[in-house]
Design a protein around this nucleic acid. Structure first.
Lengths: 150, 150
DNA sequence: CTCCATTACTAAGCCTGCTGAATAACTACA
DNA sequence: TGTAGTTATTCAGCAGGCTTAGTAATGGAG
């Protein structure tokens, strides 16, 4: 009769847990005018400028979604985009100084915010298996998704 | 240099995994004109009619979000709402015959869709700990959120 | 019995996901 | 060269999260 979260299917638990963690992040981010999705982009750009499509594939979101997120980051002055000279279809996205600064401020938090989470190798391994099994890195499409096992 | 998902913070992995699983669900649901959020509501209503607020707390979403989801379910004919006679602020939500039918069709899928997921007691336990630590059941607010440990 | 705090829900608006469909630029091939 | 196909991005629109700000009904205190 009692309908607690305890007897929910695992997929649903996954969604709720992810939402709660993200929400906690939001509280820390909003005072910098930054979103969780934006933080991910700034993090990815740490290694240098990237095109929109590359960013999208890295974050496992569609190009459309990434386009809008980058738009917002640009509006807020955290990234700038330039048309790729070699392939004018491409828009290269790079961090501004403000973007690099705000990322540096937030970066340390990733480990401090949920230390138990970061240290749980078991959980990380399981999540990575799920991601590979369900989503799969788009690079090797020859892998059968049935080879999971967990 | 290579920026794969492997070295992402755990919270981010959680979000990606949840999104991928939900997306897989969506494919199976859309042909019935049902959303993932809607399925959760129909599931919760399996035990009988519930008010909007109760549904929201059960799903760990805000009352506003639940209001809209119920609105969509009602539009599609899967639930009906009636004003509670005893407390006219409340709107009781109950499944229609169509709602009960479509839920029955989908219900079995919960276990079949990702069998490995459902059987991983380890993962379930970890997710429940996260949910309790970060979100916490609103019922016992006396529990200190520091008592996690994973 | 009246007044006020609380509770349940609604309204408006923002952000991030998605899909489907268009456009522009590049590439390959005849 | 020219044309067809692929790839990168954008546009439009829907759903579901969230927040802040109302409104209406309840219920308790004086």
């Amino acid at each position: 009769m009692r309908d607690t979260v305890d007897d929910w299917p695992t997929g649903r638990l996954l969604a709720v847990a992810a939402r709660l963690v993200e929400q906690r992040w939001r509280e820390a981010l909003e005072e910098r005018g930054l979103s969780y999705a934006g933080l991910i982009v700034l993090h990815t750009l740490d290694a240098g400028g990237r095109s929109l499509g590359v960013l999208a594939r890295a974050a496992h979101v569609t190009a459309q979604t990434m386009g809008r997120t980058v738009e917002h980051l640009e509006r807020d002055g955290y990234v700038r985009t330039v048309v790729d000279a070699g392939d004018r279809r491409r828009r290269l996205v790079e961090r501004t100084d403000a973007g690099a600064r705000v990322f540096a401020e937030m970066h340390g938090l990733e480990a401090r915010m949920f230390p138990e989470l970061e240290q749980s190798e078991q959980l990380r391994a399981t999540l990575l298996e799920i991601i590979r099994a369900v989503g799969g890195d788009p690079q090797p499409p020859a892998v059968t998704p049935d080879s999971l096992g967990l």
